[in-house]
Design a protein around this nucleic acid. Structure first.
Length: 440
RNA sequence: GGAGGGAUGGCCGAGCGGUUGAAGGCGGCAGAUUCGAAAUCUGUUGUGCGGUGUUCCCGUACCGGGGGUUCGAAUCCCCCUCCCUCCGCCA
């Protein structure tokens, strides 16, 4: 969330960013409304403080008067306090309304954009930063992963549909094992070489958690909501591990010595895919339930830029070790996510579609989520400074490294042979126990 | 599911209607001492909001969350959440 006071102070700047995002009219209207509400709030809070000071002064007096036995004077003062309280009550009511509306509006405004984010309305305007690897030239027509997997007997989309309908997958034998191999390979890489702490987290969370990361209140349709309340709260299946992991330090202040935090976790992810009807309906590309190994970093504000580049490199490392050709895209203002100030997508080569497709998205959210979650860190005390430095909101970053289902898709397609077999990349062989998968 | 006991500042822990934002201890920071360190002594040490104040000050709010009683609530009452112990149930 943006600081409402910042919105009130710099409405034109905020609107410039909304324009770059190609935001809707309602967002622009919200900015104007926040300016008005913030002004009113300041008036109310100031008056409330003065009145409370008056009440405290009188109450203290009353205590003294009673001790001195001056009952009449005490009663008079009581009446005076009651008048003050009546006025405080009115102010508090209005304040609650003003702050509630101000917060609701602010929660629906997207993050400001980094200067580096290019102009553009859709994914067609994203900028290609670099490419790695060369798409293989096939001396036969490469098949889509669904056919490849079917012939190997490791992927059964029909059975999945029988159980759960469209957009689900079912893996068998070496398919299930390949999924597990990828998960372990990614986790071992990030914990062993990239310095991340591995977590296992709940995948059902209470309402305040997706509020913290920004899925709520605006994108509730994208998540699966449980019918049964969870410990008294509405509950959701997580759409990404970003949601529980980024919220790990909500409502707390991290000392400088505890920074920066680097977490890696493997979770299932659940997405309703509302609004993507007809898109990528076949196979593993877009499903309601998939697995993902996710990197999350919680950093000092000054470190997030470097952390972002580091994370992209770590996700790229996964693709490089698997020998999958990819390109790195810098997302434009119209395509970037709600909470991100800057975002890279990695797109892997998909032979059957003859193009690159998203396999990882790595975002720097700046302090957008930190403010929503109230996660702060305290800068190191400068030598010679008497007082501790004021806490500041942390920066948060998240990125897939990688989405497991899409990685399997890419492997099956890029490593397929004319006879229908699929070669297993070197780095996965210890996890797989075989070098090649052959048709049954 | 049943019966109890808890939740206080970075941590431990007092307070149970009025100079209590909160004793005491630990930890942290600064100073003294030391060649340096340890030990010791002294001081200091929360966060948010607001202020025609800006290396500091003033006001206000915050003792799990919400509501209530009262002139005044960490303290009394109600509801909720979480944690602990015992019993039951399940694995």
């Amino acid at each position: 969330m943006l600081d409402p006071r910042f919105v009130a102070a710099e409405p034109d700047l905020v609107k410039q960013h909304l324009t770059r995002r190609h935001a809707g009219d309602d967002a622009f209207a919200s900015v104007d409304r926040i300016v008005a509400l913030t002004g009113r709030r300041t008036e109310l809070v100031t008056e409330q403080g003065d009145l409370r000071a008056e009440r405290n002064r009188l109450s203290k007096e009353i205590g003294g008067l009673f001790k001195q036995g001056k009952r009449d004077e005490a009663e008079a003062a009581k009446a005076q306090v009651q008048e003050v309280n009546a006025r405080v009550g009115v102010i508090e009511q209005e304040l609650a309304l003003v702050e509630g509306e101000q917060r609701d509006l602010a929660m629906r405004l997207p993050n400001l954009l980094d200067d580096a984010v290019p102009e553009g309305a859709s994914d067609e305007d994203n900028i290609e930063v670099s490419r790695w690897g060369t798409p293989r030239t096939f001396d036969f027509t490469p098949e889509a992963h669904v056919e490849v997997g079917d012939k190997l007997g490791i992927l059964d989309m029909a059975k999945a549909a029988e159980l759960s309908g469209a957009r689900f997958s079912l893996l068998k034998g070496y398919g299930a094992r390949l999924e597990r191999a990828l998960i372990n390979f990614f986790l071992d890489l990030h914990t062993g070489e990239h310095g991340y702490t591995e977590l296992q987290v709940p995948v059902i969370v209470q309402k305040h958690v997706p509020f913290g990361t920004g899925q709520l209140p605006k994108f509730s349709d994208d998540m699966f909501k449980l019918e049964q309340p969870l410990n008294g709260s509405p509950a959701y299946l997580i759409p990404t591990a970003e949601v529980p992991v980024t919220n790990l330090h909500r409502e707390s202040i991290l000392e400088d010595g505890e920074m920066n935090r680097k977490y890696v976790t493997f979770t299932p992810c659940f997405r309703s895919e509302a609004g993507s009807a007809g898109k990528d309906v076949r196979g593993l590309m877009r499903v309601h339930q998939f697995h993902k190994v996710e990197l999350v970093q919680i950093t000092r504000p000054e470190d997030s830029e470097a952390a972002h580049e580091e994370m992209v490199g770590q996700a790229e490392k996964c693709l490089q070790l698997l020998g999958l050709p990819y390109r790195k895209m810098l997302l434009c203002g119209g395509d970037i996510g709600f909470g991100a100030r800057k975002c890279y997508d990695l797109e892997v080569w998909v032979p059957s579609q003859d193009r690159y497709r998203e396999i990882s998205s790595i975002s720097n959210c700046g302090d957008f989520q930190g403010r929503r979650m109230n996660t702060r860190c305290r800068p190191a005390q400068a030598p010679g400074e008497k007082k501790k430095a004021k806490p500041v909101f942390v920066h948060t970053l998240n990125g897939s490294a990688l989405a497991v289902g899409r990685t399997m898709l890419a492997l099956l397609e890029n490593y397929q042979q004319a006879d229908g077999s699929v070669e297993i990349p070197e780095v996965l062989r210890p996890y797989m126990g075989v070098d090649v998968l052959r048709p049954q």
